[in-house]
């Protein structure tokens, strides 16, 4: 019996799960296309991952091992509460280790450790429509997708270049999926975009407030939009992680005091912990040991 009694397995009723499951199947068959679904009220406010939670609840089985990250971290409020939610309502095993998880729900990061076949990455999505800030009418954006008319998006990226000298979009950077639909990868840093391409894991996206589900099947081409003379480039950091010394990973800035002290550490806490357990130490590693 579940620890939280009175609820169905994984909180949602079976009718809702079937509806979400049917939406997921169509989303997989039409990569990058946003499937409307009848998003439910969840016991958490919009913006806290109601879409991702519903997708996770619909796919989760007893044998799954769930990991939840919030900006790469397993330890922040959103991640802790969603992990506890499923531990209570579905009684599934939970983990913070990327390699051990079968289902990873994420709010805006893709783990640094390469994902594997058989894993499912579930994204929490605030605004699924990549064209929404360019065209507010749903009737119009739907038509634009139907016609594969994405000129607006290229104009937006061009205006970035005209104004800033480079494409200034750094997160929710639009991608083209399998050569057809332009998709919002959710507000992940563009640093993570290349990980979506040819990813061995299945990627599912749930937007609760906006009532949309979309998907990228494994080994699918995901191309970040760019121009020949302004190719897509990811952020780079001029120093390694202060705790584990990792290079080529996404870093968070952490303020240490009110005198301008700061350090840059791995955004992916599991990756950082694993490296430190293996004996890697960064320049700030010693200080961190007694914080």
């Amino acid at each position: 019996m579940n620890a939280a009694t009175g609820y169905n397995f994984a909180y949602l009723d079976e009718g809702t799960k079937r509806m979400i499951r049917r939406a997921i199947l169509k989303a997989i068959a039409i990569p990058g296309y946003q499937v409307p679904f009848a998003s439910r009220e969840m016991p958490m406010p919009y913006g806290w991952g109601t879409g991702g939670v519903q997708v996770t609840a619909a796919i989760l089985g007893r044998a799954d091992v769930l990991k939840v990250i919030d900006q790469g971290s397993d330890d922040t409020t959103n991640a802790v509460s969603i992990r506890a939610f499923f531990a209570r309502t579905a009684d599934v095993a939970v983990t913070t280790r990327t390699r051990e998880a079968t289902v990873i729900q994420t709010r805006h990061r893709i783990p640094e450790a390469p994902l594997s076949e058989g894993q499912v990455l579930v994204y929490q999505v605030p605004i699924p429509e990549p064209l929404r800030f360019l065209e507010p009418r749903e009737t119009e954006t739907r038509q634009l997708h139907a016609l594969a008319e994405y000129g607006l998006m290229h104009v937006k990226l061009y205006e970035d270049i005209a104004r800033h000298g480079h494409i200034a979009t750094t997160y929710a950077y639009p991608v083209e999926v399998a050569g057809r639909y332009v998709m919002d990868p959710s507000p992940t840093p563009k640093f993570d975009n290349p990980k979506m391409d040819d990813c061995p894991a299945l990627q599912l996206f749930g937007a609760g407030r906006e009532k949309r589900i979309y998907a990228v099947p494994p080994h699918t081409r995901v191309r970040s939009l760019d121009f020949e003379d302004h190719p897509f480039r990811v952020q780079s950091f001029d120093r390694p992680c202060a705790l584990c010394g990792a290079e080529g990973v996404y870093l968070d800035e952490v303020l240490l005091d009110d005198a301008g002290g700061r350090m840059f550490v791995c955004s992916d806490t599991d990756h950082c912990e694993e490296r430190r357990a293996d004996g890697h130490v960064g320049t700030g590693g010693m200080e961190a040991a007694h914080v």
């Binding site: 796919i59 989760l60 299945l202």
Partner: peptide, 19 residues
């Protein structure tokens, strides 16, 4: 077992469509 049997069948279909 309606809950877990249905979930198992769905995951088989989902994995088949995804791969």
């Amino acid at each position: 077992d309606p809950v877990h049997d249905a979930q198992g069948v769905f995951r088989a279909v989902m994995d088949a469509l995804a791969r």
